[in-house]
Design a protein around this nucleic acid. Structure first.
Length: 1135
RNA sequence: GCCGGAGUGGCGGAAUGGUAUACGCGCACGACUCAAAAUCGUGUCUCGCAAGGGAUGAGGGUUCGAGUCCCUCCUCCGGCACCA
């Protein structure tokens, strides 16, 4: 027999398999079920590392196993070939990024082939291939046409030294990943994809997926959905206006919305006039304008508002005034009678002629509000209005179409200055004692919508300075300086809509501009951050929630269905007279630990009651009240001593003992609880009752209670639970709103080496999609790949390429020069695998259907919230467009572990701990490396495994012993090994299916150990193993070590590849052992063993066990005997 | 801080609520050898001479029986992080 020479064996079979097309996958095979196994395709960095082996070679075991189990398996591979490293290398070495990338791919393909993986290379996908990115562009345009893509001024990371935009992942701790220099936030026009439209579905659809919990959780976390309310706080700017509100066609001054606006404006001290316009069912210009003019005097403090036809009247009024007013607001207005739904009878009674010059000279500010679902006013009409007034309309979703709801709050917002806040705790509204705006808040923007709202601001310079300084603050500084800073907007106050009270307004950078509305209400009593801020700026802290806790676990958990006994009570934190210790009680009946507490008798003073309780429970007589510990703490629990549910309302106090004078505590009290003095730092851990914990935190002055409870100081809502108050207060004073942490996906990259965005900019048509027939828009050749300092992509340097004709109007136009984020490329590559060569479609629908969804997707944990989330979104969007048939792309997702260097550190060149797989493969063989990586630990759990150069040798030894074992193969099956073989077949199959490759391998090792023992020792080297047994063993080993098994298989005379054979079946009848050893336990502890036959019944087991433990059972009374067939007998005896 | 995961020999790890430490590495001793390597054999949680006892991060609970289920705490790892 030759020795095991892995090099020649592996080379030989790799060649043969490829020649035979062993792994070519057909889309449909009759009688076979399809199985789509996906691994993340690699970036062609140029060199394969151990991580790649772990990612590709280990799942290959499953792919091979499933094939042997009769599945038609798709195991594809490709390259994620666009991206920065190529461009950086190109800049550095003056190469073409394409050349660099393609040669890397060639090299890596060779390396990947050395793994012995069963990839179907005929389906290879390369994202930088125009044949691929044609469809990336096409899919992007489908989204563009569906309105999922938009351009927006977005804050981007700008590296001051590289003079380019960086992706978030390239910003590490606020500095540039490459050059370590400062990164600044800049506003730039960027292409965005509306992933936030899918936020809800991306969260909700997770429930139905068979994914590990941690992956689902981190996606949920990342999306960060929170439900709450938006509440409007009107501003009092110190100026009183006169509002003239003009109603529309068929309207009247007493319509609910006019009533609402009037009421709200009057609350702020403004004057409101709503003239009744005549002949409202049959209106004429002359009559209506005259009525409006007669209603009042118009001057610079007048705010003129017109709704619908009222807007036309308002414009006419302005035409005739002698002096200007303060402001004009129109909602649902128009200047011509061409409505999109129907004609109106006033069409001919108005002139539809306006003196725009006059109008504009009579008002310094014009606001045009357009309702997004307006049924009458058409886009064309709106456009004409905008053009006419020279003002861009503000698009708002009203309460009802055309702003006809009962309370049109959004209109009100534009009538008066309003700050809208988002909160998840509307129940704490009465405790809002100030407002805070983010420095980026639109109200603060210079010349905000032309409004002079901040004209009365007293400390303009200070505010400006603060805004400037926070803009300059880098992310790093913001993180480092966690202390809250802010500046008050002086002479401006907001009105708390619940209390009607004036509260101060601040700007502070602890409020984020991009989350919620960019403004928050400060509730210092119930929010830690607000509390910190309020303390610093000495703002009032008003408690509006009394904590309410319910004991849910343990012996004092409330008993369901039993009634509660209400009782007023006290809770006393008592400090030692000389030491820094506190009196705690441990209740004997229920393991509860807390402070002294007790009921207050009818008519009894709370302080007196507290002193009485201290005396009764501890015996101490002389106490002094230090302070009251705030509001009542409501607590529901079960009292074992009283044997009933209690609903206690504790008034908490802090006392200090004057001295140690103590009287004897009654026997009854001693039975109930034990008293002890705990050191200050130990109390928090010792006390386990929630009510006592709250009291303790208050005693230590660190309580900001943000839990549930009962409302106080909240007007009509007093006494309600926080839960119901959230709904009730939102209903009355706000609107329900859900916000997300997830932001839209910015896909613009000002980089060369990516997919060109297939859009053309035309001066008259705006951004226009490139025609399908013109796709792909190929990357132009440029001289150098350095980004321009201006933030333009290097594509802009291809001047000729940029100049095109507009696909719509054929006029002069320019190509978009940004490229797409590479996450776009990888958002759909798994779809292309199903039909990689299709020239007419991104993939054929039938082929998609035969392979999608992916059965198992294995990849790195770092992609959980990026690639995996993006591609789920992408797939859902395609689903909505009817391009895919299923709403989720991946049935199962699995995150892979990380392979560390031998020193337990992450492998890196600088640490010198990098394992070169090519070297190890050369020395020990691909089979050894594959198998070692599979053996290192469970593949379906996330962990970190150091590469162990010693352990890898262990696997090599195993394969060498397998090689030698061919010598033991005779003709007749070994009866001694038959049972074990069938057990091995069962276990290995089960373990591979659940990706526990490590235990599958150990099972194979156990079989080989037994085989050697049997052959070498029992049979002294005779050929004991049957040929059939040996071939079964080889088939079990084949998915792990494909080369050596193929060689041994062929050496045994087989012509067909072992990888084309079927997985062995086990014979259930052969799994049973003749004799087994069972455990004999006494009181649950193993004390002896007994040998019984494999099918022994309970009686036999008990008899054998009694004999085995006879001496130990002597003189003991057996109370119970528990018999578990095939396992153990447990005697429960008297101690 | 919040969310998630995990703590078992010297190391990677194994164990449907049922004989804890399978399998592999390492180590020790032995065989083979002039010798070494390779290979093979034996042993290898801990206390104890033994009989026995103890141990799965710590403490408690449920159970005939807990590494596994429940509660409290500690430590480590991952993610998010002023998200209102």
């Amino acid at each position: 027999m030759k020795s095991y020479e892995h090099k020649s064996i592996e080379k030989k079979w790799a060649k043969r398999w490829e020649k035979d097309g062993l792994y070519k996958t057909k889309d449909v095979v009759k009688g076979k079920e399809n199985f789509n196994l996906l691994v993340e395709f690699p970036y062609p960095s140029g060199n394969l590392h151990v991580g790649h082996w772990y990612a590709f070679a280990v799942p290959d075991i499953l792919a091979r196993f499933q094939r042997m189990r009769g599945k038609n398996v798709l195991y594809p591979i490709g390259f994620d070939a666009f991206g920065l490293p190529a461009e950086n290398a190109a800049i550095k070495n003056k190469l073409n990024p394409r050349t660099w990338t393609l040669s890397n791919i060639e090299y890596m393909k060779k390396q990947i082939r050395s793994m012995g993986t069963s990839f179907d290379w005929s389906r290879e996908v390369v994202t930088c291939d125009p044949a691929y990115y044609k469809w990336t562009q096409w899919l992007f345009l489908q989204f563009f046409k569906a309105g999922l893509v938009y351009r927006k001024e977005t804050a981007v990371n700008w590296c001051l030294s590289c003079k380019t935009v960086l992706a978030n992942e390239q910003v590490v701790n606020g500095t540039c990943e490459r050059c370590d220099s400062e990164v600044e936030q800049r506003q730039m026009l960027q292409w965005n994809i509306k992933i936030t439209d899918y936020a809800d579905r991306l969260v909700d659809d997770l429930d139905a997926l068979d994914w590990p919990k941690e992956i689902k959780e981190s996606q949920k976390n990342w999306i960060g959905r929170s439900e709450g309310a938006e509440i409007d706080f009107p501003l009092d700017l110190g100026i009183k206006y006169k509002y003239v509100l003009l109603h529309g066609f068929e309207g009247a001054p007493d319509m609910p919305r006019f009533h609402f606006w009037k009421e709200e404006l009057e609350k702020l001290g403004h004057e409101v006039i709503i003239p009744a316009l005549p002949d409202t069912k049959n209106p004429s210009e002359e009559e209506q304008v005259a009525a409006a003019l007669a209603a009042t005097e118009y001057d610079e403090r007048t705010v003129l508002f017109g709704h619908s036809l009222g807007a036309v009247v308002a414009l006419k009024v302005l035409e005739r005034l002698q002096k200007p007013i303060g402001r004009l607001v129109v909602a649902g207005g128009f200047i011509d009678p061409e409505f999109k739904d129907k004609r109106r009878n006033f069409e001919k009674r108005f002139s539809w002629k306006f003196d725009v010059k006059k109008i504009k000279s009579n008002t310094p500010v014009i606001h045009v509000l357009h309702e997004t679902k307006d049924y009458g006013v058409s886009d064309k009409q709106l456009q004409r209005l905008e053009d006419f007034l020279g003002v861009k309309a503000t698009h708002i979703e009203g309460e009802a179409p055309h702003f006809t709801g009962q309370k049109e709050r959004s209109v009100l917002m534009w009538l008066r200055a309003t700050i809208r806040v988002f909160t998840t705790r509307p129940d704490t509204l009465y405790g809002a004692t100030y407002l805070v705006l983010a420095p980026e808040h639109p109200l603060l923007r210079q010349g905000f919508e032309g409004q002079a709202w901040l004209s009365t601001l007293q400390n303009k310079d200070e505010v400006k300075k603060y805004i400037e300084s926070s803009k300059k603050k880098t992310e790093m500084e913001r993180l480092a300086l966690k202390k809250k800073t802010g500046v008050q907007l002086k002479a401006i106050t907001a009105i708390n809509p619940a209390t009607g009270k004036a509260i101060p307004v601040y700007i502070a950078d602890y409020v984020l501009g991009h989350y919620g509305t960019g403004a928050v209400m400060g509730v210092p009593a119930h929010d830690e951050r607000d509390n910190e801020f309020a303390k610093k700026y000495e703002l009032p802290i008003i408690e509006v929630i009394e904590p309410a806790v319910t004991q849910r676990a343990g012996l004092d958990a409330v008993r369901e269905e039993e009634p509660f006994t209400e009782r007023p009570a006290i809770l006393a934190v008592v400090k030692h007279w000389s030491e820094d210790t506190y009196l705690c009680l441990a209740y004997k009946a229920n393991d509860a630990r807390g402070f002294i507490s007790g009921g207050v008798d009818a008519g009894e003073d709370f302080l007196v009651a507290a002193q009485r309780e201290i005396r009764e429970e501890s015996g101490y007589k002389n106490v002094v009240l230090v302070k009251s510990l705030g509001s009542v703490i409501h607590s529901k629990f079960y009292s074992p001593t009283k044997q009933k549910n209690l609903s206690a309302h504790f008034t908490p106090f802090l006392f200090e003992l004057k001295d140690g004078e103590q009287e004897e505590v009654s026997e009854r009290e001693k039975r109930i609880q034990e008293m002890c003095w705990m050191k200050k730092e130990e109390v928090a851990n010792f006390v386990n009752r929630d009510d006592s914990r709250i009291a303790w935190r208050r005693a230590m002055g660190m309580d900001v209670y943000d839990g549930e409870g009962t409302l106080v100081n909240s007007g009509d809502f007093n006494g309600q639970s926080t839960e119901s108050a959230r709904e009730a207060i939102t209903e009355k004073l706000g609107t329900v709103k859900t916000t997300y942490k997830l932001r839209d996906w910015i896909v613009s990259r000002q980089r060369y080496w990516g997919v060109p965005i297939p859009i053309v900019h035309c001066a008259s048509c705006g951004p226009v999609a490139v025609k399908d027939s013109e796709l792909p828009v190929k990357l132009p050749e440029v001289k150098d790949y350095l980004p321009e300092g201006s933030g333009k992509s290097p594509l802009a340097k291809a001047k000729k390429w940029v100049q095109v004709k507009c696909p719509k109007c054929k006029g002069k136009a320019e190509r978009e020069t940004d490229t797409l984020d590479t996450f776009v490329d990888s958002s759909w590559y798994y779809l292309r695998y199903t039909d990689p060569k299709n020239k007419k479609k991104f993939a054929d629908a039938k082929k998609l259907q035969s392979w999608m969804p992916v059965d198992l997707y294995s990849g790195g944990a770092e992609h959980t919230t990026m690639h995996v989330l993006y591609s789920r979104f992408w797939h859902k969007a395609l689903f909505d467009l009817g391009l895919t048939k299923e709403p989720e792309p991946y049935t199962r997702r699995m995150n892979r572990s990380l392979i560390l260097g031998p020193d337990g550190q992450k492998m890196s060149k600088s640490k010198g701990n990098v394992i070169d797989p090519d070297e190890v493969v050369g020395r020990l063989g691909a089979d050894t490396v594959r198998m070692y990586l599979a053996f290192i630990g469970p593949y379906n759990e996330i962990n970190t495994y150091p590469w162990s150069p010693d352990s890898v040798v262990g696997v090599r030894r195993f394969l060498e012993r397998v090689w030698r074992a061919q010598e033991y193969v005779g003709e007749a099956d070994s009866p001694a090994l038959e049972n074990l073989l069938h057990k091995t077949i069962k276990k290995v199959g089960e373990d591979i299916a659940t990706m526990k490759f490590n235990t599958a391998i150990s099972t194979l090792m156990i079989f080989l150990n037994a085989l050697e023992k049997e052959t070498l020792r029992q049979a002294q080297g005779k050929k004991t193993l049957g040929k059939a047994q040996w071939e079964n063993f080889l088939r079990l080993l084949a998915p792990f070590a494909p080369h050596i098994t193929e060689e041994l298989w062929a050496a045994g005379g087989q012509k067909k590849s072992v990888h084309k054979t079927v997985w062995p079946e086990y014979d259930a009848s052969k799994l049973k052992e003749e004799t087994i050893s069972i455990a004999v336990q006494i009181n649950g502890k193993t004390r002896a063993e007994a040998q019984v036959s494999g099918d022994a019944d309970k009686k036999t087991l008990e008899k054998a066990a009694r004999e085995a433990a006879a001496t130990r059972l002597e003189g003991k009374k057996i109370l119970r005997t528990i018999i578990v067939t095939g396992r153990l007998v447990n005697f429960v005896v008297e101690e």
